[in-house]
Simulated scan of single mutants.
Amino acid sequence: MDELAHKRNGAASVKTVLFLVFRIGQERYALRAVDVVEVLPRLQLKPIAQAPSWVSGVFAYRGTVVPVIDLCQLTFGRPAQLRTSTRLVLVHYRGEAEQPARVLGLLLEQANDTLRCDPQQFQPYGLDNAQAPYLGPVREDAQGLLQWVRVDDLLRPEVRELLFPSPPLDLAALEEPR
């Protein structure tokens, strides 16, 4: 009986994390649910002139202008498909450890599933993908491979500066007559 209690206590000590699972084409990806602010339906966005093609635009969210990127376009060079399951997922984005979290929107296909698992089940896949540092380790299950997307590694410094200028734009100064 003591051995059974020990096994139960050992199993309880395994730390599991909740992930939001989505797809890009037929491939599965996951974000830590703790990074997610809110999951919204796809919304009308205001385009940003001269932005990279994978920057879909901006929209107003609770008094803040939020930039939105199309993760499908960023990763594979094609826009997210217009599906009823394509979602606008708002995430906490830091980019740099000393920066406060900001809200960033992600267009994600088939973002309608979750998974709870031990993050230690994700393993390196042996490729240093410097062009896509946000694509983290993979986890194998009955459905194939699931890749972890690291939110804070999504934007290169020059794109981060475009979407989140530092210091922020002074809107009062923009409204002053010249």
Rank of each mutant, 00 (worst) to 15 (best):
residue 25 G to D: 07
residue 87 R to D: 11
residue 52 P to R: 07
residue 111 A to Y: 04
residue 64 T to Q: 12
residue 31 L to K: 04
residue 98 E to A: 02
residue 63 G to S: 07
residue 30 A to Q: 07
residue 1 M to S: 15
residue 94 R to C: 15
residue 5 A to Y: 05
residue 58 V to T: 15
residue 81 Q to R: 15
residue 73 Q to E: 15
residue 18 L to F: 01
residue 133 P to M: 03
residue 158 E to F: 06
residue 66 V to Q: 06
residue 30 A to M: 01
residue 77 G to V: 02
residue 110 Q to S: 11
residue 31 L to S: 03
residue 127 L to T: 11
residue 62 R to T: 04
residue 141 D to E: 10
residue 32 R to K: 13
residue 169 L to Y: 01
residue 30 A to W: 00
residue 74 L to F: 05
residue 173 A to M: 09
residue 109 E to I: 10
residue 63 G to M: 00
residue 167 P to M: 01
residue 22 F to S: 04
residue 165 P to G: 06
residue 21 V to T: 11
residue 134 Y to H: 08
residue 15 K to I: 10
residue 106 L to H: 04
residue 148 W to Q: 09
residue 118 D to T: 03
residue 8 R to A: 12
residue 156 R to G: 14
residue 40 L to F: 02
residue 123 Q to I: 04
residue 120 Q to G: 12
residue 77 G to P: 15
residue 159 V to C: 07
residue 9 N to V: 05
residue 108 L to W: 11
residue 94 R to Y: 00
residue 33 A to V: 09
residue 89 V to L: 02
residue 156 R to K: 12
residue 55 V to T: 15
residue 66 V to S: 12
residue 105 G to V: 07
residue 15 K to P: 12
residue 139 R to D: 14
residue 53 S to E: 15
residue 122 F to P: 05
residue 80 A to F: 03
residue 69 I to D: 13
residue 134 Y to F: 12
residue 87 R to T: 06
residue 161 E to R: 10
residue 94 R to V: 00
residue 78 R to P: 05
residue 34 V to S: 15
residue 6 H to M: 12
residue 41 P to M: 00
residue 161 E to D: 15
residue 70 D to T: 08
residue 63 G to C: 03
residue 164 F to I: 09
residue 117 C to Y: 00
residue 7 K to P: 13
residue 101 A to H: 06
residue 114 T to A: 11
residue 156 R to P: 07
residue 9 N to L: 09
residue 86 T to D: 03
residue 154 L to T: 05
residue 158 E to R: 08
residue 113 D to A: 14
residue 26 Q to H: 13
residue 72 C to P: 10
residue 135 L to S: 05
residue 113 D to Q: 13
residue 61 Y to M: 01
residue 10 G to P: 05
residue 77 G to R: 08
residue 25 G to P: 07
residue 47 P to H: 06
residue 6 H to Y: 04
residue 105 G to Y: 11
residue 80 A to N: 07
residue 70 D to W: 00
residue 27 E to Q: 10
residue 96 E to N: 13
residue 8 R to K: 05
residue 70 D to S: 09
residue 89 V to G: 10
residue 40 L to Q: 08
residue 4 L to P: 06
residue 101 A to L: 05
residue 57 G to W: 04
residue 124 P to I: 02
residue 114 T to W: 04
residue 24 I to D: 07
residue 166 S to W: 14
residue 85 S to I: 00
residue 167 P to E: 01
residue 65 V to L: 14
